[in-house]
Amino acid sequence: MNISVIVPLKNEEESLPELAAWIERVMDTHRFTYEVWMVDDGSTDDSWNVILQLAAQNPNIKGIKFQRNYGKSAALNEGFNAAQGDVVITMDADLQDSPDEIPELYRMIVEDGYDLVSGWKKKRYDNALTKNLPSKLYNYTTTRMSGVKLHDMNCGLKAYRKKVIKSIEVYGEMHRYIPVIAKWNGFRKIGEKVVEHRPRKYGVSKFGLERFINGFLDLATIMFIGKFGKRPMHLFGALGVLSFFVGFVIAAYLAIAKILFDKVNMTDRPLFYLGLLCMIIGSQLFLTGFIGELVTRNAPERNAYLVEERMDLTNETVNYKSKVH
């Protein structure tokens, strides 16, 4: 199968028939074999019945229905698990992403060799104050922290090589950082394509201001897991030792001052409590790192790695993706 299209959605009953017809037209024109996974993220309108009707008309359309709203990341993750295409395309259901971009995104994966291609909505029709400016700040911050240079990290229109989506897991609000997650999993060839951004035709946006707070916290989580997920002591232990050392130096200074100048009362000085606090925090951080190491070393996936190539017994190179335990 050439392409799997994953469409996460919530309350998009009006746009689904038009989107399905548009995708079908593009696929038939370019003679792609394909499947479309529409993931209903707890819609309260008639979206699921529309999906059932579309699936009855076109066997390439398939659906997944959540019992309640879990979020876009959960919907994408379920779609990733179900997808069978060699190239996986994700797009929003609100018709702001154009299916006409699919052939070129497919070509960039298959012919240009990209692992992931992210859309860049260079010209947007969103509100400049509530979406465009925060989006630019978010993209700048993410690029600086992660090193993944994309103009539109959160664009819903993306293309993936199959092994990418089978190697990652997204939850919370982490769909915004899939390129960062892919990079941490060793997929370095990440590209970008300018895509058309269309005005919303039906319904309203499903995202509020809380996405900025949640997005920042998820970015911090990804950065921590990517760097220290298998070695927490390297972070907490180092911070703990540094903090304890600062506290120890302060305590040593006050002790020497007490010995040399007997009139100095150590406990009357704020510096004493600062040193004590540093040593306590240092000890707690070190123990946190130690406990983290115990948890990590007893985790069932502690030695799970993505293997791209391995020499078999006849010294022939075998290309595959697997986990080594």
Results as ranks from 00 to 15, higher is better:
V36N: 00
I213T: 11
R188C: 11
M108A: 03
I213G: 04
K122C: 07
L54S: 02
G237T: 05
I102T: 02
F286D: 09
D97K: 02
R124I: 04
I190G: 10
D46I: 13
K193C: 03
M311C: 09
I109W: 02
D41C: 07
A299R: 14
G275R: 02
F80N: 01
C278R: 10
E12P: 11
N77R: 05
T314L: 13
R188S: 14
V318D: 15
V87Q: 02
L271W: 10
R269Q: 13
N77T: 07
M1E: 14
R297G: 05
V204C: 08
S243D: 14
K163P: 08
K136T: 05
L306F: 10
D94G: 03
R107N: 05
D312Y: 13
L260P: 06
L137W: 06
L313E: 15
T143M: 06
V324W: 14
R31K: 11
N11R: 00
I280D: 15
Y125F: 08
I256E: 14
L9I: 07
G282E: 04
G237K: 04
E35Y: 00
Q53I: 07
M38K: 05
G119E: 04
A83W: 01
W48T: 08
L271A: 11
D268A: 08
Y320N: 12
I181G: 01
D86E: 15
Y34H: 02
R124K: 07
A56N: 13
A255E: 15
L274E: 15
L239I: 06
N265W: 11
Q84G: 06
I6R: 00
D86M: 10
A21T: 09
D40T: 12
E309D: 13
S135W: 03
R176N: 13
I6Q: 00
V87D: 03
S43G: 05
S283C: 12
E308Y: 12
N315C: 09
V295Q: 14
E18V: 09
Y34T: 01
M174Q: 08
S98F: 05
S167N: 08
F236S: 10
V88R: 01
M153E: 07
N265M: 10
M153I: 13
F245P: 10
